[in-house]
Amino acid sequence: MSHTPRHASVYLVHLPDEDAAREVARILAERGHVSVSVREGVAGQPFHRFHEASWKVTGVDAGPHPDDDERWWTAVETRIVETLAAERGGSCVLMQAVPDTVRALFPGETAVDRPPAEARAARLAALSGEPACAPRPVVVHRLDHPASDGPSGVPVALPGLDDVDWPSLGHAYGPAEDAPDILRAMAANDEGWDEATFEYFSAIVHQETCYSATPPTIPFLVRMARAPEMTPEYRLELLADLAYIASFDPSPSAGEEPAPTAHAARACREVIGALPALLARWPEAAPAERAWLIVLAALSPAAAAPLLPAFEGFRRGLEGPSPALDLALALAADDEDRACGLVLDYTTWDEDVSRHLADDTPLRCRHLAVLTRLALAEIPPRG
C-alpha cells in the first residue's frame, strides 16, 4: 500500500552547464518529482553554490512511497539524484520540509509541473524497481556493562598536560588554551563528566571535525581509559569516543605519516599507536568493554593479531546476530572479502550504510565508518 510522506524532499542539484541541467530536470520529472525547475545560477542567490556560470535544478519529491518507511525511500531517491549529479560533474543538496514550507521557499520556480495523479503514478513506477528495506537483524545479546556506585571522584593524573603548547593549537572556537581545563575536568572523574565531555565534543572535536588541538588530546583520553581509578561507565564512553574519532579518517593505518594539517588522520594515528596499551585491558574487561576493544582493534590488524583468537571466542559466546562485531572481526583479521560481503548485506536494511560506501575514501576507511555507526547502535556506551 502506497504512503504519502509527511515531508517533501527538495533536491537542489548544481551542475556546470545548461545541457546537463536540462537533462537532469527531465529525468527528475520522469521520476515523478511533482515540481522541477531549471535556472542559471547567480552569485548571492539563495541556495546557490559554485561559480556564477553554474546551473541549478530544483526537484520536489512529494511521494508517494511504496510503503511507510520514509527514511528508507528518501535515502534511495537521494542516492539516485546524487549519482545523477556526480555523473555530470555536479553535486546535490537535500532539504526536507512540510509541503507548505516548500511552496513558500520556492514560489513560481516551476518549469515542469505535473498533475498530482500523473506525478504520483510516475513516482511509484520509478521506485518499483528498488528493493524495500529488509528486516533489520534483531540483536538479542545483552552485553553486561561495567557497574559502579557512581563517579568515584578519584582524579586521573595527566602528566605532561602542561608541556603541550596548547595556545599555539586551535579548535572549533579559536586558540586551544582551554584544552587543559577541559581534559582536567574529564579526568576529575566526578559528576562533572557529562559537562566536560560536552565541552570536549563542542570545541576539540566538533561535528566530526578535528583540529590541530585534537591529536595531542588523544594520549590523555587513552590514559584516562586505562586508569584503574576511572569510573567504569566513563571508561566505556572513552573507548567509544576513541573509536568514533578514529573513524573520521583512518587512512594512516595503512599509509605514510599524515601531513601536519591532516588533523583527523593524525588523531587516528594516535589511537592506533595506543591500541596495544588499550588491548592490554582485555583480561579484566567487562563484556561491553571487550566489545568496544574489538571495535577499536579493527583499526589495526597488526595490533589485533595476538588477541584475534580471544576475540573470535568472545563472539562465539554471544547469542544471535551481531553486525558490529562480525564486521569488526573481519576488519581485525584483514579479511576484505568478508568485510565487503557483510557491508553489502547491511545496505539492505540500513539506509545510511550506502551513504558511507559512497564516500570518496579508501574502501577500508568506509568500512570502518560503517563499523562505528553499527557499534554505537548495537553497543551503546550507557547501556
Rank of each mutant, 00 (worst) to 15 (best):
A8H: 14
V13L: 07
H14M: 08
L15I: 09
L15A: 00
D19G: 03
D19Q: 12
A20W: 01
E23K: 04
V24K: 02
A25W: 06
I27W: 10
I27K: 11
E30K: 07
E30M: 04
G32K: 02
V34L: 13
S35P: 00
V38Y: 08
F50W: 12
S54W: 15
W55K: 02
K56P: 00
T58R: 06
G59D: 10
G59I: 03
R71A: 14
W72L: 12
T74L: 13
E77N: 06
R79Y: 05
I80N: 01
I80M: 09
E82R: 09
R88G: 09
S91P: 00
C92P: 00
V93R: 03
D100A: 15
L105G: 01
G108P: 00
G108Q: 11
T110Y: 05
A111V: 15
V112Q: 10
R114L: 15
E118T: 12
A121T: 14
L124W: 10
E130N: 04
P131C: 03
R136W: 08
H141F: 07
H145C: 01
P146N: 11
S148A: 15
G153W: 12
A157H: 11
A157C: 06
G160W: 12
L161G: 13
D163V: 06
D165Q: 13
W166N: 03
G170P: 00
G174L: 09
A179P: 02
D181Q: 15
L183K: 01
E199A: 13
E208H: 10
C210S: 15
E229Q: 15
P232A: 10
L238M: 14
L238G: 01
I245W: 07
I245S: 01
P252W: 02
A254F: 14
G255D: 10
P258Y: 10
E270L: 05
E270A: 11
V271L: 09
I272S: 00
P283M: 04
E284I: 05
A285C: 07
A286V: 14
W292S: 10
A297V: 02
A298S: 15
L299K: 00
S300D: 12
A305T: 11
P306I: 12
F314R: 03
L318P: 06
P323D: 05
L325H: 08
A330P: 00
L331R: 02
A339T: 06
G341F: 07
V343H: 10
W349Y: 15
E351I: 08
E351Y: 12
C365D: 14
T372M: 14
R373D: 13
L376T: 13
